[in-house]
Design a protein around this nucleic acid. Structure first.
Length: 362
DNA sequence: TAGACGTGGGT
DNA sequence: TACCCAAGTCT
């Protein structure tokens, strides 16, 4: 950007940064993972909340965060926990690689860093599940390092403030430079949270409330009456529709056939055997993926579910016949107690299958 | 760089 | 209904 396009660094920091922080001091959200004003933050709580909040709303995270903090109050406790317990506690929150990485990261912090989170963004970056945003957020919020924690909120607020015409994600570098131009060196942690609060509560995607915005007088987009034109984004690919089948096999009325893929879609989570979920299968074709060649009863209706990158329609087949193979000797499958289905922790998709098969209440 | 990777709520 | 979005990361 041309120097004349914006205020000089020091002036911008005082002008924009000061307005933002003054607003935040009276408008900050109280959130369970936040330290009270003037109190030292808990790096473990900051890290845990940041992982949970990736692509996930505050409303969805709140209950899970409380549950995790009660059950595993510090990084040592979480590192000691079996991965399956962590995944079961995460069930329903989505993006399950986050839970696998969370557990791996706790282990690294304990074994390689003596149970203390690194304070520098370069050291945080590269921990499992910690990318550029999360590294900067932890460094800023937990350790008051002058880092730009550039999430979707920041990209929206700053792209409007400076009317950034370049589309995302190419514009990330430009937006970061703009943000650094008014980053508060005095209060970098508060600055990061203030920018996110502004984006979440005032400078919202559809209908920003500029009358409440402390930066409205400096906002290029608003001056042009074009707030919602920013951030500029590219076209999104269409979402394909896929069909498949899930198989509910009961043994003696109390054991249920399960499997647990290590990675990929819903990786780590206990699930009903099914067709590969990332491909489209007609009904006849789907039967080739039944875990046993026995009589299956097709349950009426479908289970429908929408993932980020495709929608899914699942037929559900049920059988209580004795299988023609011994699953105990077969890797990938195991028998699990029906009564303990809840403790296993089900993804939302598999919870729908369980409800459809009347194995679980809504 | 673009696609994989969940879920629930808002409009 | 359909689409968008929410404190992104990994490959």
């Amino acid at each position: 950007m041309a120097p004349a396009d914006r205020l000089s660094g020091a002036v911008a920091e005082i002008e924009l940064g000061g307005k933002l922080l003054a607003w935040w001091d009276v408008s900050r959200r109280e959130l369970p993972w936040r330290a009270l004003a003037g109190r030292a933050p808990d790096p473990y709580a900051v890290w845990l909340s940041e992982i949970m909040l990736q692509q996930t709303t505050v409303a969805s995270v709140t209950g899970y965060f409380g549950k995790f903090m009660s059950r595993w109050p510090n990084v040592e406790a979480l590192a000691r926990a079996p991965l399956e317990d962590v995944l079961a506690a995460w069930a329903g929150l989505g993006y399950y690689a986050r839970a696998r990485n969370l557990h791996a990261c706790a282990g690294e912090v304990v074994r390689r860093h003596g149970g203390r989170f690194p304070q520098e963004p370069e050291a945080l970056l590269g921990l499992p599940g910690v990318g550029p945003y999360t590294a900067a957020a932890i460094a800023a919020i937990a350790f008051n390092r002058p880092c730009v924690a550039q999430d979707g909120n920041v990209e929206r607020v700053v792209s409007r403030l400076f009317a950034v015409e370049e589309p995302l994600p190419a514009a990330k570098g430009r937006i970061k430079a703009h943000t650094e131009s008014f980053l508060s060196r005095q209060r970098p942690g508060d600055f990061a949270q203030a920018l996110m609060d502004l984006g979440a509560t005032v400078c919202t995607p559809r209908s920003p409330d500029c009358s409440r915005c402390p930066l409205a007088g400096n906002c290029r987009a608003r001056a042009d009456g074009a707030q919602t034109r920013f951030p500029v984004k590219g076209e999104k690919p269409a979402r394909p529709h896929r069909r498949g089948a899930a198989f509910v096999l009961l043994r003696g009325g109390e054991a249920l056939l399960r499997r647990r893929p290590a990675k990929g879609l819903l990786g780590g989570m206990s699930e009903f055997p099914s067709t590969p979920l990332s491909a489209d299968f007609g009904l006849a074709e789907a039967m080739g993926y039944a875990p046993a060649e026995i009589r299956w009863r097709r349950l009426e209706g479908h289970v429908r579910h929408v993932f980020t990158h495709f929608s899914l329609e699942l037929a559900v087949f049920l059988s209580r016949e004795a299988p023609d193979r011994n699953f105990d000797a077969c890797d990938g499958y195991r028998w699990a107690d029906v009564a303990r289905l809840r403790e296993e922790g089900l993804s939302s998709l598999m919870r729908k299958v369980a409800v459809h098969a009347e194995l679980a209440g809504k």
